[in-house]
């Protein structure tokens, strides 16, 4: 089974976000960039499928030179090959999807695995978008699944319950937490990954469909009534919920 895993580099969740001078992006200095946490589940799932069915796992990212770091992590975890579509401009998600789909067409994978969402722009749109470009079925936010005779049965959480879905291979899925426990790369594998080749793939210059006009830090308009634990103080909060917030 040939598997393509798409991964992205994102600021560490605890990073302090500041808007840069252009008013449209974040100030990158001082920020630690990491492998998108959901993409660890995607890589792990690819490796487990290879252990079960054989084949190869390729990790792909669309990003700048520094994104090679996450490909090294993927190589250390055990993927067979890593590729990068290098772009220095900030692309919209459609552009990223076109680049991923373009590469996927050249290798015709049996499965393309994504993370559920990237924790920078939180769009959760990449998997269905790429699937549509490849004319393949997709299942997003998979928390458990099984493959039998090239037919996938997957479970996912939806509002108010759980859905069970089926489709056949080739297909696209996106991985939710709970799908597996990603392995930690071992030190010798981390060392070995440093000298492995990373394929550079030419980007296809599509046109963006969305423009980002500004970025701001949200102002918190919170009431900020913080009280102690006496009965009277608790009662005052209940009154405020009723009369001021009008939520009860």
């Amino acid at each position: 089974m040939n598997i393509l895993v798409c991964i992205s580099q994102v600021p560490d969740t605890t990073a302090k976000i500041q808007v840069s001078g252009d008013g449209k992006s974040i100030e990158k200095t001082g920020i630690k960039f990491i492998l998108n946490p959901y993409d660890e589940f995607a890589i792990e799932e690819g490796l487990r499928l290879r252990e079960r069915f054989g084949g190869t796992v390729i990790a792909l990212t669309v990003g700048s030179e520094t994104s090679k770091e996450i490909l090294r992590t993927a190589l250390a975890m055990g993927v067979d090959k890593a590729g990068i579509v290098k772009t220095d401009d900030i692309l919209d998600s459609y552009n990223v999807a076109e680049n991923i789909a373009g590469y996927a067409k050249s290798i015709s994978p049996d499965l393309v695995i994504f993370g559920r969402q990237s924790i920078d722009f939180d769009s959760s749109g990449m998997a269905p978008m790429v699937a549509e470009m490849l004319d393949l079925p997709s299942i997003s936010v998979v928390s458990s699944w099984n493959i039998e005779n090239n037919v996938i049965t997957a479970e996912r959480d939806i509002e108010g319950g759980k859905e069970v879905l089926t489709c056949s291979i080739p297909c696209v899925i996106s991985a939710q937490k709970g799908l597996n426990d990603p392995r930690y790369p071992k030190l010798p594998d981390i060392m070995k990954a440093k000298s492995k080749p990373i394929e550079e793939i030419a980007s296809c210059h599509g046109s963006a469909l969305v423009s980002l006009t500004s970025m701001v830090l949200p102002s918190s308009k919170r009431v900020g009534m913080i009280v102690g634990d006496s009965e009277a103080e608790i009662a005052s909060v209940v009154t405020a919920l009723h009369e001021q917030a009008k939520v009860i």
Partner: peptide
């Protein structure tokens, strides 16, 4: 829409 776990907000528009 919120981005970066709600730490920033962006204004976006379709240009198609």
């Amino acid at each position: 829409r919120p981005v970066y776990a709600g730490k920033a907000h962006i204004a976006v528009q379709s240009i198609s």
